[in-house]
Structures are given as C-alpha cells and as structure tokens.
Simulated assay, not measured.
Amino acid sequence: MDLELRHLRAYLAVAEERNYTRAAQRLHMTQPSLTRTIQQLERIVDCRLIERTSRRFALTDEGEQFLTTAGRIVADLDAAIADLQLRSAVSIGFSWLLPDIWFAAARTRFETLGGHVEIHRIDDPIAALLSGGIDIALLRKDIRLPAQLATRAIAVERRVLAVSARSPLAHARQLRWDDAARYPLVVNTITGTTDETSWTAPHPDRTIVTCTNFDEWIELIAADRGIGAVPELARTRAPHPGVVYLDIPDAPPSHVRLVWRATPAPARSVQRFLDVA
C-alpha cells in the first residue's frame, strides 16, 4: 500500500488532538476506522509513530519528526490547491444581450476572490451546457429544462415592442399589449422571450415567422416581416436603423435565469460564482 493524503491527515488530527475519539469526530469518521488508518501508516513507514498506553498519549521520537514533515506537506498541498481553485475559470454562455450591469458586478465580485470569468456568445447555450462546452448558461426563454440542470432567476426585465421603422406602428401612441396580438410575429425559437403564447388571446390567423438567433430576428423585424418583443435592454444594447422600440405599459416582463449542471455536482468554482452572482 502506498502512502496517501488520508494517512497524513489522520495522523495530524490524532497528533494535534492527542485523543483518538476527538480526532475521529474532527475527521467525521469512526474511531476504529481512524485506528486502522494510523496502523496502515505505521506499516507503510515501517516505524512506530505513537506510543499506545492506557495512561498517556505520546508520540515517539520518530513520530515527532514525522509530524513536522507531514504538517509541512499537507499545508503546502492545501495552499497549492486553494491557489488553483481561486484561479480557476468559469465559462458563461449567452445568446444575446448580456445584462452588462449585473455581469460587471458579478464578475468583479468573483474575480476579487481570485477566479476568472470567460464569456461566450452562443446561439444555443443550453445545448452547450449539456455538452460541457460551458459551465453556466444565461437564459431568458421560459422552457422546460432537462432534469440534470438547475436554474435560478436573477432579474426581471421590462419588455418593449420592436417594429420596423417602415411600419405604421412605429408612430403609434398609447399602444397596448393586446393591440399587437393580430400582427405578424417574428419568433426566435431557440432563445427568444416572446412567441404566440405570450398573448392570452392570440389572433387565430396570425402569421408566425421563425428564426434561430437574435441577429436573424432583428433583421427580419427591420425588413417588416413582423413585429417582436424583447427586453428593454435592446434599446441601448442593440440599436438598429431599421428598428423602432416602443414602450408598452402592460407588456409582460421577461425573466433572466442562470442555468447550470446540477448532476454531477458543480465544481467549486461554479458554485462560488453562483454564490456571488
């Protein structure tokens, strides 16, 4: 049997506690299991490290010497692991309109702890998450997620109507959400926030134009193929000379969520980002 880190940690706990019962409790193991681990260690080093008597606990001379070495090894290893964990990178995938204020704050908090954030613009972040291409997906679309994924809402965004600058709606006043239910609708089927079900009473003959990413979506809006709705952030983050964004007071809000793999359990760096985000 080779010497393992568990042998060193067990020996350090026993030597520091000077008591097998307390050391076992500290290590969350049974006392017989701890005793066997120490016995294995002594067989590996071929030397008695602890004097066992009914009246006192003591380390042998060899045990005292080994305690110093073992303590230094474990401390150095723990420091190296902690340093690597702090410098680990977390990759975040988004399809469009990364919430810049939230992201800047979350990245600053995470990188203050020593980590590093990588961002990736991806048409289908959920597919990338499932394949292991990213660690966390930012999602606005309300969809049923696979069982191995977990999600957490981080923001609620106002929704605005997007219409072609050539559309008569571009100059509409006091437009309400239900007023838009009869117009052709452009739907980003992969990551869009709005589709025909976003209206409680959609027009039965409504034309639906589909696409699979934001770039296609905004060009179809500009071409007057239909209307659409997006978070208000698009007004400043995605201006387009052929698109007008209209305020709709009663438009339903959209939600921003973080999604990550819950099975198997996420890496510590991923959990640390989730904690600060």
Rank of each mutant, 00 (worst) to 15 (best):
A262M: 08
I81C: 07
G242W: 01
S91G: 14
I218C: 15
R121C: 14
R152C: 03
I218F: 15
P231D: 05
F66L: 00
P125Q: 08
A128R: 05
L220E: 00
S198L: 07
R268M: 03
V14Q: 13
L274V: 04
A223Y: 04
P146Y: 06
R55K: 05
H120C: 10
R225K: 14
D124R: 01
T263M: 02
P241F: 09
R182Y: 07
I126N: 03
H7S: 13
P249R: 04
R22A: 15
A162G: 00
G115W: 05
R182A: 09
L59I: 07
R107V: 09
A155K: 13
L274S: 13
D78M: 06
A267C: 12
T21P: 14
L41M: 07
L246N: 12
I208E: 03
Q65T: 11
L258G: 14
S95R: 10
L246Q: 13
S164R: 05
V74T: 04
P249T: 06
S33A: 04
R237L: 12
A265L: 11
D2A: 14
W177S: 10
I122C: 06
Q40M: 03
R225E: 04
Q174T: 11
N188M: 12
P184E: 10
R237A: 12
N188T: 14
Q39I: 09
V74Q: 03
A170Y: 12
L27V: 11
A106H: 15
A137L: 00
G63E: 10
Q271M: 02
L8R: 15
V270P: 12
A105H: 14
P241W: 13
D78I: 04
A89Q: 03
W260N: 11
L5G: 06
L12E: 00
V117I: 04
R158P: 01
R121W: 05
H255A: 12
F57L: 13
N188Y: 02
A104D: 13
L84D: 15
A127G: 00
A137V: 06
E64D: 02
D275I: 11
V14G: 00
H28S: 02
A137T: 03
E62H: 01
P266A: 14
A277M: 13
R152L: 04
I136Y: 13
T189N: 07
A234N: 06
L59F: 08
T37C: 00
V74G: 01
R166D: 09
L49F: 05
R9L: 09
S91E: 13
C211L: 02
R9S: 06
H240N: 12
R6E: 11
I73E: 01
S198K: 03
Q271A: 13
L77R: 01
I248T: 10
R235C: 15
A15N: 06
K141M: 00
V14Y: 14
A170E: 07
Q271W: 10
G71T: 04
L67E: 00
V187M: 01
R36H: 02
A106Y: 13
R56S: 02
V14F: 10
E232A: 13
D142V: 04
A70S: 06
R206S: 08
I208K: 01
T193L: 09
I73M: 05
R9F: 11
H240D: 07
R206F: 03
L5P: 05
T193D: 05
R257V: 01
L67D: 00
G192P: 08
A222P: 12
G228L: 02
S164W: 08
A180E: 12
R261W: 05
T108F: 02
D247R: 15
